[in-house]
């Protein structure tokens, strides 16, 4: 996985991206496979968590093709990952554009992601999180506005840093900061309310 602790603008999490990009631009199409293999996992997670659901892998495929076509517009030395994830985020959004109300459809799609999260894998990381707590957080995330959910997903669930989150969502850094702040406050309130109403929440004191 390349869910790194990259500092904004750096390339430390994926050494070689710049070199690989240079090869791709020089006409070495095969070199692009290196980038696809390297970033496909995080791209699929991003699509999934932003609401692509079962279409995540198709969305990622499209995103890589578009990213390739757009390499001419890519700034030399800029980190590839956030730029790619931005295209993934846009493609995911495009899935839900349409006759219906986009926000509603996006939400429905996200609700479909819920089982994935609530079930989860019982890996060591998630053992720390009870099934009830997981369900609670997912319910809380669904109740957030799209923008608030997206910023929480990028910054915490995907573990992107603030600069990357800004690129991926196409917002100014300041907007990421303020929305994240409000989203966390709201989420804490929602989760607390749910805990109160359940009265038996195993981690009731956490929020």
């Amino acid at each position: 996985m390349y869910l790194g602790d990259e500092q904004g603008g750096g390339i430390s999490d994926s050494p070689g991206d710049t070199d690989v990009l240079a090869r791709v631009r020089a006409g070495d199409r095969e070199a692009y496979a290196v980038l696809v293999r390297r970033h496909a996992p995080v791209a699929v997670r991003t699509a999934m968590l932003l609401g692509a659901g079962t279409d995540a892998e198709d969305v990622v495929q499209d995103a890589f093709v578009k990213a390739y076509a757009g390499l001419r517009g890519f700034r030399d030395g800029a980190p590839f990952r956030p730029w790619l994830l931005r295209i993934v985020a846009n493609e995911t959004r495009n899935l839900h554009r349409g006759a219906g109300r986009r926000a509603a459809r996006e939400r429905t799609a996200w609700e479909r992601t819920l089982p994935l999260l609530a079930e989860g894998q019982d890996d060591p990381a998630s053992v720390a999180l009870s099934r009830e707590r997981r369900a609670q957080l997912v319910e809380g995330l669904i109740l957030l506005s799209d923008a608030h959910r997206q910023v929480v997903v990028c910054r915490y669930l995907l573990d992107l840093d603030e600069a990357e989150t800004a690129v991926v969502l196409g917002w100014p850094r300041g907007t990421v900061k303020s929305r994240l702040h409000r989203a966390l406050n709201q989420l804490a309130r929602i989760v607390a309310r749910e805990t109160d109403s359940a009265t038996a929440g195993p981690e009731g004191g956490a929020a």
Binding site: M1, V36, P41, M48, G120
Partner: peptide, 21 residues
């Protein structure tokens, strides 16, 4: 907990990655 929740998202199998590539 949100970080932990993120880590419960199923990861893509190497086979799926190969298919995408």
């Amino acid at each position: 907990d949100l970080h932990a929740l993120g880590r419960t998202v199923p990861t893509v199998s190497p086979a799926a990655t190969a298919t995408i590539t």
